[in-house]
Design a protein around this nucleic acid. Sequence first.
DNA 1: GTCTATACGTGGATAGAC
DNA 2: GTCTATCCACGTATAGAC
Lengths: 203, 203
Amino acid sequence: MARTTREHRPAAERREQLLDAAVEVMRAGGVAAATTRAVADRAGLPQGAFHYCFRSKDELFGALLERELDASLGRAWAAVTAAGDLESGIAGALGAILDRVRSDPEYHLLTAELVDVAARTPDLAHVAAREHGAYVEQAERMLRGWTDAGGVPLAVPARAVAESLVAASTGITSAWLASRDDAAAEATVALLARGVALAATPR
Amino acid sequence: MARTTREHRPAAERREQLLDAAVEVMRAGGVAAATTRAVADRAGLPQGAFHYCFRSKDELFGALLERELDASLGRAWAAVTAAGDLESGIAGALGAILDRVRSDPEYHLLTAELVDVAARTPDLAHVAAREHGAYVEQAERMLRGWTDAGGVPLAVPARAVAESLVAASTGITSAWLASRDDAAAEATVALLARGVALAATPR
DNA sequence: GTCTATACGTGGATAGAC
DNA sequence: GTCTATCCACGTATAGAC
């Protein structure tokens, strides 16, 4: 027998429910699949619920973008702790990111698509830019952690090295997502790690 | 006064018209904006014309993907001709790609989105993979051209260097598309070019 | 072969009941 | 605050005129 009434829950909780559901729907079918109906259905809510949690689909989209990118950011360079020399530290970091992508390709395909869409949408462009900046900053912090502790001096600004690492990780990631070629990805990790380390260290 | 009849043109020509129109529509509004109506309108054709040129929207999408990626590929590393040493050759190549992206950001945002969508779509995943492979191959050919001519030996397989260059160019491109930071992008080009050259050359 | 008119489904959003 | 019923615009595809 169908339940006629539904438990009343605070709107904030419903929002989270809907955001979770949106991610699930998008994982399976991409951004285009996330209609208000599909998202609400997945969340086990009536379609109308959508519009008293979010004013519009665009608003959900913005909220989703911020939440997922922040979450993704938090996990990005986290796995990397210690490092012997600079090269193996960088290789470890790039390898860790690659592993995360390999363990959940759909999710990372989704975040890539989200960033693309955000970069095009005027209201959301700043989110993509801010996210990129935060990503670089985190890489820079990681680098400084190593250099301060291990006494490895850099021949170039840490910021520039950080930018290069972010570019490298993005490139490696999207190459793997397109080709699914493990060997090539690992070779690229090794070569770029070696290269960045060499270019960043005084000779 | 409205023209009541329309000139009859061969279907192949209509297809090109529609593909051109699809690119224009997508540049402005992303992949999602490319509805059959919008595309046909932009091409100056009735909506129904769509369906005797393409069996479905998916078919247009596949055709578009192949055409644009092939075109993009043809232009990718073409600007680079000669090079003094390996490092400046690589820097020139990466810089040329960055310039192309800067001169037409919407278009490159679009190709990025197209690749994302293709990678997710089962029927189209092979297109993304093939494109990536072709891209690497072209970079490898460029490298071989330099090494054969200039007598610059490589310490690692040319293929691995090529993979790294493709990853680097992708990463640099998407960083710039997100941040629009010219200085950072140029610094990354320089650092990665230097790094790849150092890592690829016997020490 | 080319084009028009139209059917049918889907999607976003709202008004108002509970 | 929560939910239902419904509106209207849009999107794809087809049937059939020219």
